[in-house]
Design a binder for these strands. Structure first.
Lengths: 109, 109
DNA sequence: AGCACTATTGCGCATTACGCAGTACCGCGC
DNA sequence: GCGCGGTACTGCGTAATGCGCAATAGTGCT
């Protein structure tokens, strides 16, 4: 049940996806992912991914002070990020289909 | 296009799947995977995965001398391996569906 | 004051796929 | 018979990435 290994290489995609329609800060992205069904994701993984994607130039970032707690570092998709999202999503779908083909092969035997 | 990261945690599943109907040796498993569409997989990854799965108790193994080359180390699924295959496949499908849900969310907006 | 929740950062670790070198065995052409 | 390409496996070191845990810090409740 090591879901963590399935996440590898896909967390980027998931994070980009939940930021597609609205900017979000780390803790919020974490909640969106968990709310979306990826319950097991660790907080450090999300923060790490956000920093990595930002460093890679896919995200813009700005800090907003909050009334109800510490400051929040918001992230949002820029053009590169949107292109990356499309690209990664396609790669994912193609790969999923390939694997599905392998899984089905001979299953009727 | 870093497909290698998508492979993480899924190569186990793919290897178990191609061994489902027939035992195979490393080099052969490699060809089955590539033939199945995972072209980019490295040989060392496959050999490593086979060893890992064997060590974990999912595979049985026997060596067969070959007329046309070096000996071949065959691997086959045992009961634990078959159970693992079912389990991993379910985990994969569930996860793929979850991710799909996240990708679709808000896409109509 | 202490605790829980929100929010972020950093460190070190485990897993795992990969490249590359090395070993070895075969058959073919020269 | 010697090298060469294809078959077949092993081992080593590396890179990517998700995770646990500790630390920091602000807010509000008791």
């Amino acid at each position: 049940m090591d879901t963590s290994q399935l996440l590898k290489g896909v967390l980027d995609l998931a994070v980009l996806a939940v930021l597609r329609d609205e900017d979000g800060y780390g803790y919020d992205v974490l909640r969106r992912l968990r709310g979306g069904g990826i319950e097991e994701v660790g907080d450090a993984s999300v923060y790490g991914t956000l920093r990595r994607l930002y460093k890679a130039g896919y995200l813009s970032s700005y800090v907003v002070p909050s009334d109800e707690g510490p400051h929040r570092k918001y992230y949002g998709l820029n053009d590169l990020g949107r292109a990356r999202l499309v690209e990664t999503e396609q790669a994912w779908r193609a790969f999923a289909e390939t694997l599905d083909g392998i899984l089905r092969k001979g299953k009727a035997a």
